[in-house]
Amino acid sequence: MNQPTTTQGDILAYLDRVISKREQSAQEARDGGEGRWHSGWREDYFACPDDKPEEGETIGSGVSDERDRTVVYDEGRPSKAQSIHIALNDPESVLRRCAADRKMIGLMATETSETGGQPLASRLLRQLAEGYGWTEGAL
């Protein structure tokens, strides 16, 4: 049985769609702010439990934005590791990665079209697409 061949154009279209979804989601998650989030876990919190948080400030397991507005919090959840992970993947970081990925995609697309499909650029393009969930035939 013949498998359909995926072209560079198919991969580029796929990447454009999935990166656009992430950009839109990150823009919406910014909620009028800059999109910089931080974990509520503070190293000194347990050493000084009398240090009361300011109104609206997330302490412990939550995640807050740059204006100290709570983004994620549920009693005891997320865990410390989850809280830090969420904060490290804040909207600002997602948008920065999307912009960098678009620059790499543009460079790879230019190189492959100008050189008739340079093997390294083609492989890098596929690997980048895999990071966004692409698999052969995922179009």
Rank of each mutant, 00 (worst) to 15 (best):
A13H: 04
S93Q: 14
G60T: 07
P4A: 14
K52D: 09
E92D: 14
T7M: 04
T115H: 00
G137N: 12
R17Y: 06
Q24Y: 05
L120F: 07
D68S: 14
G33I: 03
D31C: 08
A13W: 01
P49R: 09
D50V: 07
D74N: 14
S93V: 09
G76K: 10
N2F: 02
Y73G: 14
E92C: 09
R30W: 07
L124I: 03
E55K: 13
R126H: 12
F46K: 11
I84S: 08
G40T: 13
G56D: 05
R97L: 08
C48D: 06
E34F: 11
E130N: 14
S79F: 08
L107G: 07
A87D: 10
K80L: 07
D50K: 03
R97N: 11
K52M: 15
S79I: 14
G106M: 09
E23R: 14
G9L: 04
K52H: 12
Q8K: 02
S79V: 14
A100S: 15
D65E: 06
I86N: 05
T5L: 04
G32P: 04
A47N: 09
A13R: 06
L107K: 00
L120E: 02
Q118L: 00
T6I: 01
Q27K: 11
T58G: 11
I86L: 15
I59V: 14
